[in-house]
Design a protein around this nucleic acid. Structure first.
Lengths: 151, 151
DNA sequence: AGTCTAAGTTTCCTAAGGGAACCCAGATTG
DNA sequence: CAATCTGGGTTCCCTTAGGAAACTTAGACT
C-alpha cells in the first residue's frame, strides 16, 4: 500500500479521515444530501472522473455511509445516506460555517441554511452536550480515553 | 494541474477542502493543537514523509491557518495555530465525535475532552446560533445565498 | 434489428505520496 | 579550530492514484 492507511491509528480523526478523507468524498456526500443521488448526476455536477467516482461510491457504501439501491427494473441505482452518513453532514455543516466565515469574501456565502425549528436562516454553533455552553478549541483539555493507544 | 482544484467552486465545503482537504492536513492541525509544533515532532509522531510534511506546512502557512516562527537563534521554527486555524479545530472536534460514535468500537474513544466551563468530560453538539435548538442534517433546508454561482 | 440511457470499466498519461539519502546553518565538543 | 550534533528541510527514485476519454453492458423503447 502506497498511500498511508489511517484506519489503524488510535485517533478518531484519523479513522474518520479513512472513511471520508479522500478527495471528493465530502463533496459526494454533500450532493447526495441535497438530492443528487445518481451516478450521472454526481458525475455531471462535480466534474469528477468516472473512475474515481466509482471508487469513492464503492468505498462509501463499504463503510456504511451510503446505501446503494435500485430505483428501476433496469440496472439503475441511487445512493442514499444511511444514518451513519447523515451524521457526517454535521461535519459538512461545520465546514460550511468555517468556509463562509474565512473564505467566502465579498460575495458572501454561496448557500444559506434555514433552520426548521425557528424558521430563520442561521448557522451552527458548537455547544457542550453536558452544560450547553460554547465549546471550542480553547475551551477544552484532551485527556487519554479508554481506547487510547496502549497495546 | 492534474488534481482538481476545489478553490474556485461556489461552495464553502469545497473551498475548505482546498485548505485542509489534502491527506495529513487535519492530523497536522490536531498535533499542533495538542502541542506538537515542530517539524521533527510532527514527522516522528505522524510517520509522514518529510517531503509531504514540508508541502503541507507550507500550504497551511500560505493559507493563514498556521504561523511559522523562530523559537531559537539557530534556524529553528515552530508552527502555531492562527485564529483562523484555531477555528478549524471545531471541525476536528466534530470529526472526533463522529469517529468516537461510529468507529471506536469496544475499546471506546481514544481521547476524551474535558470542558473548562463545567469541568466535565463531554462532547460537542451542534446548535442553531439563532434559537439554540439542535441543528443537524434533517433540521435544515439549504437555500441559495448571495455568493451562489451566477456569474 | 437498431437505438437510447444509466452505470459503470478500461486504458493511457501525468502528478502526488513514500522512503531514503543528502544538505545546511548554527551550536557544542574535544 | 576541526569534528560532530541537531533541527529543518531538499533531492531522487519508485509506485500509486487521479484525469480524460473511449469502450461496455443490460434492459427498455421505436
Amino acid at each position: 500500500m502506497q498511500r498511508t492507511d489511517f484506519s489503524k491509528m488510535a485517533c478518531s480523526i484519523a479513522r474518520t479521515l479513512d472513511v471520508i478523507g479522500e478527495p471528493w468524498s465530502p463533496l459526494i456526500l454533500r450532493d447526495v444530501w441535497v438530492g443528487l443521488t445518481r451516478f450521472e448526476q454526481l458525475q455531471a455536477d462535480l466534474g469528477i472522473s468516472r473512475k474515481v467516482l466509482t471508487e469513492r461510491l464503492n468505498h462509501l457504501v463499504d463503510q456504511g455511509v451510503l446505501d446503494r439501491r435500485p430505483y428501476d427494473l433496469r440496472p439503475r441505482y441511487e445512493y442514499i445516506l444511511t444514518e451513519k452518513g447523515a451524521e457526517l453532514v454535521d461535519l459538512l455543516m461545520v465546514m460550511t460555517g468555517w468556509g463562509d466565515k474565512w473564505l467566502a469574501g465579498e460575495a458572501g456565502p454561496p448557500v444559506l441554511y434555514r433552520h426548521h425549528a425557528c424558521g430563520e436562516v442561521s448557522r451552527v454553533d458548537l455547544r457542550c452536550t453536558h452544560c450547553g455552553e460554547p465549546m471550542h478549541a480553547n475551551d477544552i483539555d484532551p485527556l487519554p480515553g479508554p481506547g487510547a493507544a496502549s497495546q
